[in-house]
Design a binder for these strands. Sequence first.
DNA 1: TGAGTGCAGTATGCATACAGGAATTGCGAT
DNA 2: ATCGCAATTCCTGTATGCATACTGCACTCA
Lengths: 250, 250
Amino acid sequence: MSERDAERSVSQTVRAQLALRDMILSGRLRPGERISELQAVDITGVSRTPVRLALVRLEDEGLLQAIPSGGFMVKAFTERDILDSIELRGTLEGLAARFAAERGVSARSLEPLKECLADLDQLVRQDPISVEAFSAYVTMNARFHALLNELSASAPLIREIDRVSALPFASPSAFVMAQSALPEAHQILLLGQDHHRIVVDAIENREGARAEAVMREHSRLAARNLRLAIRNRTHLELMPALALLKSSAE
Amino acid sequence: MSERDAERSVSQTVRAQLALRDMILSGRLRPGERISELQAVDITGVSRTPVRLALVRLEDEGLLQAIPSGGFMVKAFTERDILDSIELRGTLEGLAARFAAERGVSARSLEPLKECLADLDQLVRQDPISVEAFSAYVTMNARFHALLNELSASAPLIREIDRVSALPFASPSAFVMAQSALPEAHQILLLGQDHHRIVVDAIENREGARAEAVMREHSRLAARNLRLAIRNRTHLELMPALALLKSSAE
DNA sequence: TGAGTGCAGTATGCATACAGGAATTGCGAT
DNA sequence: ATCGCAATTCCTGTATGCATACTGCACTCA
């Protein structure tokens, strides 16, 4: 009953969007493959109108690409695209950190961020780190980044960061789980956490350039994780986003 | 006849999108105002389905805002939002210039950019500059920025730049025309052109940091123009984008 | 007089029917 | 056997009808 309610509580459009996104990210729809509206209707079980809206939204999200003659296909990404998207996110988060530092934030509004930082500290202090702790880290890490972005107090910037982070391989937590399978795991986590500490410190002391630089560097940890994981061929199933890779080297 | 053909050649959705965008930018639809689908149907003359698609696309473009209970309203921007969007564009264009510089571009692919630079030189050499020349400058300037962005050879980055520049007040040429009415006009144009020259030089010499920094600074000319024009209350009609300002101080 | 409730008008979300067009397939001719 | 043309089939774009949810206003009761 509650399931039926939950099904009814969201619009058909959103439901279709979720279902299609899941199909794409899980690799059941391959990059370059055309998605016909009727096919999408079969998959999602809703009619063409909301399906169409969902397709437009997914295009805009960057998962689909419009075909000139009409319709959509699953977008394919190169490894370079992914690395660029990560650098892009780092640049935007760097800008957010700089805004926060230069414009100044009240001690009051910095409080949640510091709490989050302390929670993360608790998690990374473990050695070895349990899988549950990794999972908790992903959640807390996402929260840290969200709080940080909000400190920029810039709606247009936050909007763009959210947009870029929506790409499954560009989000701050995209490759953290993959990282859990690497031997370097703990060390990388500690480095990332040090970045977190530095950016908070920089914002507090209104060091804009430092805040910006460290967030840029921070994003490059994700790039590092990605390269390591691909090279090691370890636990590719922990990175569903890679289903979108062009000549999928799975 | 050709007009009718032109009308038929584009989809109803696109036509509706253009008509609505025009209404918004011209200020005939005021910020905060709700746009009902039926109203949009009256305005555009197409049926509700394409109108709906157009509204979704405009939301995504940033001109409209979804109302939680359904429907859309015209988005309102603060002066801060506009300045942040300009800084955002500068940051992204800076990243593009850095990519171009660091990764290196062939002499062959740098050629069109240099030609464009020379054309712009021709235009700014005039003193005083005719209105026609200003208009030509806007076109050529847009071309210069587009070519520059392409040199980054990064599809994800170009995508984001295009997206940010789609906001009427964030595009590289947004306030150039307004600038034409300012006494400082010529000087600012010369400064901008010098930035153009420097970025080409930096890319050629693979000076990534310099290329990035100058493009960031370049965008701040737009911010300067905006502030000047608003303060002087001069030719606000040359900046249709300002119709979106929150407490419109017209 | 103010607040709350009920009703009516209206807007949105969804489904489906229809028309125009693109791509593919099959057939025929060279 | 291959190439070209034509026909068919499927797909997208558009319009419209219907149901539901929301909003605003008026009336009533405290």
